[in-house]
Write a protein that binds this DNA or RNA. Structure first.
Lengths: 170, 170
DNA sequence: TGCCTGGCTATGGTGATCACTAGTCAGGAG
DNA sequence: CTCCTGACTAGTGATCACCATAGCCAGGCA
């Protein structure tokens, strides 16, 4: 471990020698390829705020209809949203876009991006929207590192080790 | 609240009418503008694995030297990395790239992106690198939503409300 | 002094994203 | 049947990210 104040994650003995492995199969880049465009991210954000209908997506996302249509299509294809038919009386059937389980599972990622931005990209360290624990204590909600035992984990107490199916570099 | 099984975050009374506000000043997009390129993200990831030197960044990130140089420069300009001079005996002074406090604070975001990718973008729901609680229980580490009281929070128990300095739509 | 090296910048090319504009398409009303 | 509408697609142009190649620059060695 480094004696530098700005510690980073520990590497387990099998990963201690960085020259013997690489992170090229890390899924982070793949996640970003899936959701990383401005359009996709804004559509997902709005989905979490309860937006379902195309017109409202267009209005709130602030990108062109063509882009919103294309990104919604991408998100459906990626399995993050699903189309669900609905019908107002006297009108034709249309589709709403609803978060899937995989889409829901992105909430910690979106919250952590927003929380970082709120802290570091605003003059007073706060954002326009605050998230709170509804129906419980009402305290501010944030994304934190926790272990399976429920402990809060600081960066310097994280250890990276090979996943179950990881193989050494060919 | 919706009676749909796929709930999304609650909106506080002041935000219940989505037509009266927008999320356009949300910092999520700004965060992505800061770190969202493939090069930036891969450099940050490697920083967390302890990489500091240019040559090792180039080797492990897998992008061209020109891109790695440009992205490291961007990350320094954004305040996420800082350059620190070092010198091997008999050689000239060079710079290492070290995470700043703001850079460190990105760990939950990176972990949550990786964890989503590990679960949803791999055949068996696991990634090549696992993170564990070092020097404690050794349990798997993940990014979770928690409130200020330490409670684990599920998506359907999140409420969005105006931040301290938010104003209604002009 | 000249030479070597690591780190970086510049240029032209390709592909992706988005803006803008125009058009297509299909369902439903009249 | 025609017409309207919401949702979407297509084409063009601008910008950005990255690749490949070439070159620049400054520090240090011989």
């Amino acid at each position: 471990m480094s004696d530098e104040p700005t510690d980073v994650v520990h590497l387990s003995p099998r990963l201690a020698d960085r020259s013997t492995w690489s992170a090229e199969s890390c899924t982070m880049a793949a996640t970003m390829a899936t959701i990383g465009t401005r359009g996709s991210l804004m559509c997902l954000r709005e989905s979490f705020y309860g937006v379902r209908r195309f017109e409202e997506f267009v209005s709130r996302v602030g990108l062109s209809e063509a882009v919103v249509a294309a990104r919604l299509k991408d998100l459906v294809a990626a399995g993050l949203l699903e189309r669900r038919p609905y019908r107002e009386p006297g009108q034709r059937v249309r589709d709403e876009y609803v978060l899937t389980e995989a889409g829901h599972d992105l909430l910690p990622a979106l919250v952590s991006l927003m929380q970082w931005g709120d802290r570091w990209l605003t003059p007073d360290g706060r954002g326009p929207i605050a998230l709170r624990h509804h129906g419980s204590c009402g305290e501010t909600v944030r994304a934190e590192l926790r272990c399976g035992a429920g402990h809060q984990v600081v960066a310097s107490d994280v250890e990276a080790s090979p996943g179950v199916r990881a193989r050494p570099r060919a």
